[in-house]
Amino acid sequence: MPIFSAPDGTELAYHLKGEGALLVVLPGGPMRASAYLGDLGGLTAHRRLVLLDLRGTGDSATPADPATRAALARLTAPVLVLAGELDGGPRPGLARAAAEAFPDAECAVQPGAGHYPWLDDPEWFTGCVATFLDRARGDLLIGRAS
């Protein structure tokens, strides 16, 4: 499992799946990203997913310095935050608030989906992501509110 060091020195683990242009995926939960995200409704057929284990989750270390929000504000890549309409944990409002942390973000709420929208309706999920990618182009970041 590859690891890189964040600006504050925290070691963050990531897992690679698929082929094509890079797509960084931030999971919403406290687990190893590759364990529960799977192929994200078939996205691995179109993109090379970089599944990041967030700080203190999966194979990543606990943060050395809580400067995460400041780091997100410096991110210049377009970001898609996607949430399920019926998710019992994080409500769509949280996804909208998470999108506000990025300078170039949009939020999408998948109708009728719960906590795993890529499983509830893979066609809608991959269509939404494909539309975003077509608009944004290149190597991007996709986050999911948790």
Rank of each mutant, 00 (worst) to 15 (best):
C107G: 07
L75W: 14
G20V: 01
E85R: 01
L75H: 15
A21C: 00
A70L: 13
R96N: 06
G93H: 01
A70R: 14
L52D: 07
E100T: 04
A101W: 15
V81S: 06
A35F: 07
K17V: 05
R96H: 14
L49Y: 09
T126G: 07
E11K: 14
P122C: 08
L23S: 03
L82N: 04
G114H: 10
T131P: 00
L37D: 07
P92S: 04
A101N: 04
G112Y: 03
A61Q: 15
P27F: 06
G127I: 03
R96C: 00
Q110K: 03
A6T: 12
L40W: 06
D120M: 05
G42M: 05
V79H: 07
C107P: 09
A97D: 13
H115R: 15
V109F: 03
V79C: 10
T62Y: 10
R74A: 15
G38P: 09
A97S: 12
P90M: 11
L40E: 07
L49E: 08
A71V: 14
D8R: 03
L16Q: 11
L141N: 06
A70H: 13
G127R: 08
R135Y: 01
A108W: 06
P63S: 12
G93D: 12
E106D: 07
L12I: 15
D65S: 13
L23F: 07
P111M: 01
R55L: 07
D39K: 09
P63N: 05
R47I: 04
G20Y: 02
L16C: 04
P103T: 02
Y116S: 11
A95K: 00
L37G: 08
A67P: 02
T10K: 00
G29W: 08
L82I: 15
A70Q: 15
T68R: 10
R32Q: 14
T131S: 15
A33H: 09
Y14L: 05
E19N: 05
L119I: 08
E85C: 03
L43P: 11
A98C: 10
A73Q: 15
G143H: 10
W118A: 06
V24W: 12
R135S: 09
T44I: 08
P2K: 04
L37T: 10
F4A: 04
V50T: 11
L82W: 11
L52K: 08
L49H: 11
A21S: 09
G93Y: 00
G84S: 01
L80T: 06
C107N: 08
A21P: 05
T44C: 13
G88Y: 02
